[in-house]
């Protein structure tokens, strides 16, 4: 079975780096991008199976990036999980209203994240 390809978009360099390193141990193939624009470009090149997207980013924020992904023909079918350190009363609903498949609050447990990734990729 081929490795699942994940793209992480987050402006926090160390979060991208540490999540990449950790997911690799779980046998994922991971790429990172540090802003929304770069994320969309990487997604088109890399064609991940799933995208992890941070909400609070300078410039184009996560919601705008999500819109751009959903409006970009080649990548609009790729499931997106948004994550954020911001407090949301019902992050999952807001995420789904905006076109994401799910939401995971920061800080997350790696096991939780892996479980969620597997859920949407196997589908």
């Amino acid at each position: 079975m081929s490795q699942t390809k994940v793209l992480i978009i987050d402006d926090e360099k160390l979060l991208v780096k540490s999540t990449c390193m950790a997911l690799k141990c779980y046998n994922f193939q991971v790429e990172g991008a540090l802003d929304g624009g770069d994320g969309v470009n990487k997604a088109k090149d890399y064609m991940p199976d799933i995208i992890l997207l941070d909400i609070m980013m300078p410039g184009m924020d996560g919601w705008e990036t999500l819109q751009l992904i959903k409006n970009t023909q080649e990548i609009k079918e790729i499931p997106v999980i948004v994550f954020s350190a911001k407090e949301y009363s019902d992050g999952r609903s807001i995420a789904q209203e905006n076109g994401a498949v799910d939401f995971i609050p920061k800080p997350f447990e790696l096991d939780e994240l892996v479980e969620l990734l597997n859920k949407y990729v196997s589908n």
């Binding site: 926090e12 160390l14 979060l15 540490s18 999540t19 390193m21 950790a22 141990c25 779980y26 609070m56 350190a85 911001k86 407090e87 920061k106 800080p107 997350f108 447990e109 790696l110 096991d111």
Partner: peptide, 20 residues
């Protein structure tokens, strides 16, 4: 929410990584 959770997330990632 942000300034404390994100760094904590990174530490947790690394701890998970180290465990594995």
């Amino acid at each position: 929410s942000h300034e404390l959770r994100t760094p904590l997330n990174i530490i947790m990632n690394y701890v998970s990584l180290l465990k594995v």
